[in-house]
């Protein structure tokens, strides 16, 4: 289908009005929408809504006990932001592995969430950091918003729970508790411009060698970014020992459900899960 209507609203209100009618493609940075529509993988719908001029979707602010990141925040802006660097260093770090500078300058955090790639670079740390997404809609003439945890928002490759008429307006991440350690790993032979074969995010509170509030997120090993709940259960409340670390690494190896594709086989992805979770935990243990 070819595009019949193009809108570039300046206010959220207008955008939601257009989206209410349905059959619309939402455009922000364009870095996913353009190649996916060009290749025919996800054709453009009848209406193209360019949300990039909506000021309400920009900015990174500390509110109460969480940081609210506007959906239009580019990866470059996110990486340079002091709040992000202070509270969520692994999110900033994931940006450093994200595509290339040209794409980081255009691609948005909201877009990375809505593209829902199983290998989405920023999704792994955000899931480990208990991020929630804020969605807005205008069902009955007034703007309504609600939030949903990132983990349940992401359903499968390219699939989210965003309902028709809804727009993802922000990502909110709670300010980490004291003593939280964070780690991020993206497998690749080069710093960036690489689609993950696996990615791992870890957040946990470390008190006298004991881990609690353990959050592990895995990328590219399941249809959507997944929480490593079985590995978390192995670690939660326990003192890190070489035996426990090996047990956790094995749990990570066993609980992922990777596929084999041109980038890696399922066997290799599981091996990497084991080896990297192990290295990560040794690093946490030693520092």
């Amino acid at each position: 289908m070819t595009v019949e209507h193009y809108y570039a609203p300046k206010h959220l209100d207008e955008a939601l009005e257009v989206l209410r009618a349905g059959n619309a493609t939402i455009l922000a940075g364009g870095t996913d929408v353009m190649p996916q529509s060009e290749s025919g993988k996800t054709p453009l719908r009848k209406t193209l809504v360019n949300i990039r001029r909506i000021a309400e979707l920009t900015g990174i602010r500390l509110a109460k006990n969480e940081v609210r990141i506007g959906a239009l925040t580019t990866i470059s802006e996110m990486m340079a932001n002091d709040l992000i660097r202070k509270h969520f260093p692994i999110l900033a770090e994931s940006g450093d592995h994200f595509a290339s500078e040209q794409i980081r300058n255009a691609g948005t955090l909201g877009g990375n969430v809505c593209n829902a790639s199983p290998a989405g670079d920023t999704l792994v740390p955000m899931l480990a950091l208990d991020a929630v997404v804020e969605l807005a809609a205008k069902p009955n003439g007034s703007v309504e918003t609600h939030t949903t945890p990132l983990g349940s928002f992401l359903v499968g490759p390219g699939k989210t729970r965003r309902a028709q008429g809804e727009l993802l307006v922000a990502i909110r991440i709670p300010v980490p508790p004291a003593g939280q350690v964070q780690r991020f790993f993206k497998f690749g032979t080069r710093p960036a411009l690489d689609i993950s074969a696996i990615a791992i995010g870890l957040a946990a509170v470390k008190t006298k060698g004991v881990l609690s509030h353990v959050r592990l997120a895995y990328g590219a090993v399941a249809p959507a970014i997944m929480r490593g709940s079985k590995t978390e259960a192995v670690l939660e409340g326990k003192r890190l020992t070489p035996e426990l670390i090996e047990q956790a690494a094995q749990a990570a190896h066993d609980e992922v459900k990777p596929i084999s594709d041109v980038r890696a086989s399922d066997w290799y992805r599981r091996e990497l899960m084991h080896n990297i979770v192990k290295r990560m935990l040794i690093d946490v243990h030693e520092h």
Binding site: T189, R190, P191, L193, D194, I195, V262, R263
Partner: peptide, 28 residues
């Protein structure tokens, strides 16, 4: 030696894009 392979399976090129046919980039 390290990064490039045109993957041909059953007569079909499986990685017809730079995203999966990896040329060496500057940092490498």
């Amino acid at each position: 030696a390290l990064t490039e392979e045109l993957i041909v399976e059953d007569g079909v090129v499986k990685n017809p894009a730079f995203r999966d046919y990896k040329l060496v980039t500057a940092p490498e």
